[in-house]
Design a protein around this nucleic acid. Structure first.
Length: 579
RNA sequence: GCGCCCGUAGCUCAGUGGAUAGAGCGUUUGGUUGCGGUCCAAAAGGUCGUAGGUUCGACUCCUGCCGGGCGCACCA
């Protein structure tokens, strides 16, 4: 498949070569004109002007006259200052666009592991996890689209003092209650004991020590503690699975910290023997961080990371090193991506640096996909003030809005389970679109009510444009003779051209998003296609026009609808044929 | 103190050194009721945090400052 941009690029390059004798790629840059009425594609002449030492405006004039020769491709070439604006031949533009789809590439790319979500098994998932998961899914889809072999993984944080706190609270105050006996979802049930622990510990400081003791007993393998740990972990994980199913988060591999926390010690000891690491005065194993990259401590001393404590026990980064190496070996990885909040940026910088220092080639391809915090309309989520937005509650709220919309529109015309299905697709799509529409690294403000709006840059707006297109296609089925389609009739109405322009830009747009690990580029494209579709819908009647034009318009509409669906699928968002 | 990220319209966000800095929401005015109400036209709203520098050209690159967030453990 040769894209429109490639065809035009080749023509321009040949003209430039003939006139000025330069052929390198970055001499000419193709851009989208700032105004659609200027044309379909713009050429910027600054680089060429610099090389041939001529005024860019003169170059534009010369180039424009050269480009008027290929009328089968370029209908019009107009110099505007240092730019040449091209209007493509309608026949060429529309036949290139109609029928093309955003098919993913063959799997020939690198083996990538993408780790996301990584929950703690002491409380339910919250809004921050939702952003994490939604990003993880979308980036996985984008990488797969561009040909990577992606394995998704989830590291479940199922050990540590915070886990013991909820265990201790349940043991002391639970009276044997279970999720089943209380009718509560397992992760919420356990989360309540974690909160209860904090409350009780205020009055009884000895609880902290008891939790520490429990952790020690767990590490020794005390059967009673291990049994309790397993029981409560199952409750939480069952709850997580339900939430993940609702939101479409799936994993190829699950790692559990209770399995992996012992990893890494050997590697550190070997690194010490090889002289990569050092022993500190206290006997801990440390790695000195190079000043050029990490700076110095407050007192001017060199920064260093502890990798093993003086008693030989491991710290957080020890097991991260061990797990990274194990994963790379198990799956023969070329690249690792970690979707983790940006508060851990420093940690990952250090981790990747140490892996490189140990000589692992794949470590240079490690990437921390750091995302910003999610704020609420009235500020930051604070667990102490109870303003943390629970993932399940959020989904229920937004799906509830969607259900009200569906019920108002369809009433009893559709079955309740169908109404529920539609509300789910709309509500979950709304949340996902809202969270993906902003650049991942930015802190964002989440407004549930705004996310579900059918106006503006939202998921429901995009889904609606798709459903509307499908409705027209259903109505036209059997009434329009598709074999009579005459593509050359397209392009007289501006809205047809605008729609085609949006579709032309999609392949390079998705490619850019994949390379940048940034789904917001795709969300933006989906909105623009949806908008162009709505404008096309308004200005270009189909059933009322003669069949050669009607069929051509239907073909364009089909391509646009399929492209929109594919864009939304890349974001992990579903569509409805009727909504 | 040091490091990273951010600061663009009332709000939410775009803006690979290049054309008059753009969308959406909200506000105001008008048109449209169509294959399915999500469409269109227009108005208002910006010293792009601030002061310098580099450049033919800076929202974009560099430096200082101001404001916000997050980090900088023998925690995870």
């Amino acid at each position: 498949m040769t894209s429109v941009e490639e065809v035009v690029g080749k023509i321009v390059a040949s003209k430039v070569e003939r006139q000025w004798g330069h052929v390198c790629d970055d001499v000419i840059t193709l851009k989208t004109p700032p105004r659609l009425e200027f044309g379909d594609i713009a050429i910027e002449c600054f680089n060429l002007a610099r090389i041939v030492k001529t005024n860019p405006a003169d170059i534009a004039k010369t180039l424009a006259s050269l480009l008027t020769e290929d009328t089968a491709i370029i209908a019009k070439a107009v110099a505007m200052g240092p730019y040449v604006n091209l209007t493509l031949n309608a026949q060429f533009l529309f036949s290139a666009v109609v029928g093309t789809t955003l098919k993913k590439k063959a799997i020939t790319g690198p083996a990538v592991m993408l780790e996301y979500l990584s929950p703690n098994t002491n409380k339910p998932l919250h809004l921050g996890h939702v952003r994490n998961g939604v990003l993880g899914v979308a980036v996985t889809n984008l990488l797969q689209w561009s040909g990577a072999r992606v394995t998704t993984s989830c590291l479940i944080n199922d050990r540590g003092i915070h886990i013991c706190k909820s265990m201790l609270a349940w043991k002391l105050f639970g009276n044997g209650a279970t999720p089943a006996s209380t009718g509560k979802k397992g992760d919420h049930f356990v989360g309540e004991y974690y909160v209860l622990f904090a409350q009780k510990a205020k009055d009884d400081p000895s609880l902290e020590a008891q939790a520490q003791e429990m952790l020690a007993r767990w590490e020794k393998g005390d059967p009673e503690i291990v049994a309790l740990w397993k029981k409560m972990k199952t409750w939480v994980v069952d709850g997580f699975e339900e939430t993940c199913n609702t939101l479409g988060f799936t994993f190829d591999v699950i790692y559990e910290e209770s399995d992996t926390y012992r990893l890494g010690k050997d590697i550190i000891r070997k690194g010490l023997a090889r002289g990569v690491f050092q022993k500190s005065d206290s006997g801990a194993v440390v790695y000195p961080l190079p000043e050029e990259e990490f700076g110095l401590n407050k007192d001017g001393s060199q920064k260093r990371v502890t990798l093993l404590r003086h008693d030989g026990t491991s710290v957080y980064i020890t097991q991260d090193i061990g797990t990274a190496i194990k994963r790379a070996k198990d799956h023969n990885l070329d690249k690792s991506i970690y979707v983790v909040g940006d508060e851990q940026t420093y940690h990952f910088r250090v981790l990747f640096h140490i892996l490189r220092a140990l000589g692992y080639a794949w470590a240079t391809q490690s990437y921390h996909l750091a995302y910003g915090m999610v704020l609420l309309p009235d500020g930051k989520m604070k667990s102490r003030e109870g303003t943390v937005v629970d993932a399940d509650d959020l989904v229920a709220e937004v799906v509830g809005y969607a259900r009200a919309w569906v019920d108002e529109k369809w009433g009893k015309a559709i079955a309740p389970n169908e109404a529920a299905r539609r509300a789910h697709v709309i509500g979950v799509g709304a949340i996902k679109f809202y969270l993906l529409n902003a650049n991942p690294k930015n802190t964002i403000r989440f407004n549930p009510a705004a996310s579900i709006s059918f106006d503006g840059v939202t998921g429901p707006y995009c889904q609606y444009a798709y459903a509307r297109a499908k409705s027209v296609l259903r109505k036209a089925d059997g009434r329009v003779d598709m074999s009579s389609a005459d593509i050359s009739l397209l392009g007289d109405v501006l809205e047809e051209r605008i729609l085609a322009q949006q579709l032309v830009a999609l392949p390079s747009c998705v490619e850019t998003a994949a390379v940048a690990h940034d789904p917001s580029i795709v969300a933006d494209a989906a909105y623009h296609v949806a908008r162009a579709l709505n404008q096309f819908y308004t200005s270009c009647p189909i059933l009322a026009v003669e069949s050669r034009l009607a069929a051509a318009r239907l073909q364009l509409l089909t391509t646009a609808a399929e492209s929109l669906k594919e864009l939304l699928h890349l974001l992990g968002i579903g569509v409805l044929e009727e909504m």
